[in-house]
Structures are given as structure tokens and as C-alpha cells.
């Protein structure tokens, strides 16, 4: 299971320097595709559900200027960030504690191995019955789903701290709290970040999902209403916003990781360049 989370983090592509180097050539073909798409749109050769890029851009800009987009995006991001923060914090804290104290890990291990492979989003309708249709139930679903991958990553990280480091710290008279703060957490940070990255991707998926099911505000709501009115340009504008937000959040987390983990990434990540 720990291998699974590690593999999941591994799958997520990192920005590559090699890619940046040949950017000139790399961008040519996508640009050509975009141009062909635009031309087809101008000459009316596209089916109704595919909208020309210029029209998506114009609608997007219009919605941005009118403030409509920022309002919906803020409402979506509020739920998403709260769900991510609560779920990932709980997962990380419990995971690190379980990695240090064996009784805690003995309690959580059977539960996690039982629940982790279950698609927890299926409980969403029941959560709606329990907590109402508002923000709370959406945040609860995100919290539950994000807890598991972050727990597993943090547990794995805290478990794989080198014994020598722990012994040295204990020999030097470190208390349990100090040991966790100054030895376990720093060496588990790369794994913890992997868990947070998975949680971040999950939080965006759940943000859209919960809003498509029931909502009165948010980007998923824009998509659902646009679909009912067959306004495909508005739909694409909302999808574009979600894509930009998801992409930027991922890159922001990577930047933060690169900033906090100077020197630690080399040894841990050298295996899969």
C-alpha cells in the first residue's frame, strides 16, 4: 500500500528542465493544433459542442471582468482548501504519530487497509442527508477522502526514518516531542509532500464532483447550469478556470516543496528522473 502511494506520487509528472530547453520546438505542434482548431471554428466546421478557442477566451474574459468568475471560483476554492487543509492535516498528524507510536499504528492499520481501496465518494448522498446540502457536507467528503492517502504517505515516511538518527537523538537526551519535531518530521517531509500532492489532486476532483451533484454556487455549478442552457462557451470557460487553478496549485506545491526540501530531494527522487 505504501508502495502504491509512492508510485502514485511518482506518476505525477514533474516539470522537466529538458522540456524547458527544447520549448521552442515543443510548442510548435500544439500551437499548430490550436491554430487549426481556431480556423475550423471560424469556417463553421466544428460540431456544436466544440467551441473555437477565441470564443472561449472572449467568454472567459467577459465572465472574469464582470466578477462572476471570481465569485464562483472563490466559493469553490473556499470549500476545496478547507477540505484539503483539514483532511491532509489530520492524515499527516495521525500518520506521523502512528509511525512513532506502535499502538496507534496497530489501531489504524486494519481500518486503513480495509477502507483505503473503497471508493469513498459513494457515501456522498448519505453525507448530504446527514449534514445538509451546503458547504459542510462537501468539506466532510473531501476530508474523509483526503485523510487516507496523506495518512499512508506520512506513516510510510515516519516509519522509514533511519534508526541511527533516532538513536543518536535519544542518546543526546531528546524528548519524544523534540524527537518528532526535529528528527522524524524533517526526514519524513518528502513523503508527506507526496501525500499532500495526491490530496491536492483529489481535492480538485471532489470539488468539481460535489458541485456537479448539488450546488448553488461554484465552478461546478457554472458547468451544470451552462449544460442545461447549452451554453458550451460558458462551460469551457469554467473548465478552463478549473484547469488553470488545478495546474497552478500543483505547481505552487512543487515550488514550496523545492523550497523546503533543499538537498533532500536528490537522494529520495534520484531513482525516477
Amino acid at each position: 500500500m505504501t508502495g502504491q502511494t509512492a508510485a502514485l506520487a511518482e506518476t505525477m509528472p514533474e516539470p522537466k528542465t529538458a522540456f524547458a530547453e527544447r520549448r521552442g520546438a515543443g510548442w510548435l505542434i500544439p500551437l499548430a493544433v490550436l491554430l487549426a482548431w481556431e480556423l475550423c471554428g471560424q469556417f463553421g466546421m466544428l460540431p456544436r459542442y466544440i467551441v473555437a478557442p477565441s470564443r472561449i477566451g472572449a467568454t472567459w474574459w467577459g465572465m472574469l471582468v464582470s466578477g462572476e468568475l471570481t465569485g464562483h471560483a472563490a466559493s469553490s476554492l473556499f470549500r476545496q482548501s478547507l477540505g484539503l487543509l483539514i483532511g491532509a492535516s489530520c492524515g499527516t498528524i495521525v500518520g506521523v504519530l502512528a509511525g512513532v507510536f506502535a499502538p496507534i499504528s496497530r489501531f489504524y492499520e486494519p481500518l486503513v487497509s480495509l477502507i483505503y481501496p473503497v471508493p469513498k465518494v459513494a457515501i456522498l448522498p448519505l453525507i448530504f442527508v446527514w449534514f445538509g446540502l451546503g458547504d459542510l457536507s462537501k468539506i466532510v467528503v473531501m476530508t474523509i477522502s483526503i485523510f487516507f492517502p496523506t495518512y499512508i504517505a506520512a506513516y510510510h515516511g515516519a516509519k522509514s526514518v533511519q534508526k541511527i538518527h533516532i538513536w543518536t537523538a535519544l542518546n543526546a537526551g531528546a524528548t519524544r516531542a523534540r524527537l518528532i519535531r526535529q528528527v522524524v518530521i524533517p526526514s519524513a517531509l518528502p513523503d508527506i509532500f507526496n501525500g499532500w500532492r495526491i490530496g491536492l489532486a483529489l481535492s480538485f476532483v471532489l470539488m468539481v464532483t460535489t458541485e456537479l451533484v448539488v450546488s448553488t454556487k461554484g465552478l461546478g455549478y457554472v458547468i451544470a447550469r451552462a449544460e442545461e442552457n447549452l451554453r458550451f462557451d460558458r462551460m469551457y470557460a469554467a473548465i478552463l478556470t478549473i484547469a488553470i487553478l488545478g495546474f497552478c496549485a500543483d505547481r505552487l506545491l512543487l515550488k514550496l516543496r523545492g523550497y523546503l526540501l533543499v538537498g533532500q530531494l536528490m537522494s529520495k527522487d534520484s531513482g525516477h528522473g
Partner: peptide
């Protein structure tokens, strides 16, 4: 690789579920 890698690298963090209505 030139044609498809950008799609896979940039498309990865985007929730594909938002395309479901389309």
C-alpha cells in the same frame, strides 16, 4: 513525444471529471 507529451504533462493535474457534461 513532441505532440502528446505536453497534453499528458499539463493535463495531469486537471480534473477530467469537469468534462463529463460535454
Amino acid at each position: 513525444n513532441r505532440v502528446l507529451e505536453p497534453i499528458f504533462i499539463f493535463g495531469y493535474p486537471i480534473p477530467k471529471i469537469s468534462l463529463y457534461p460535454i
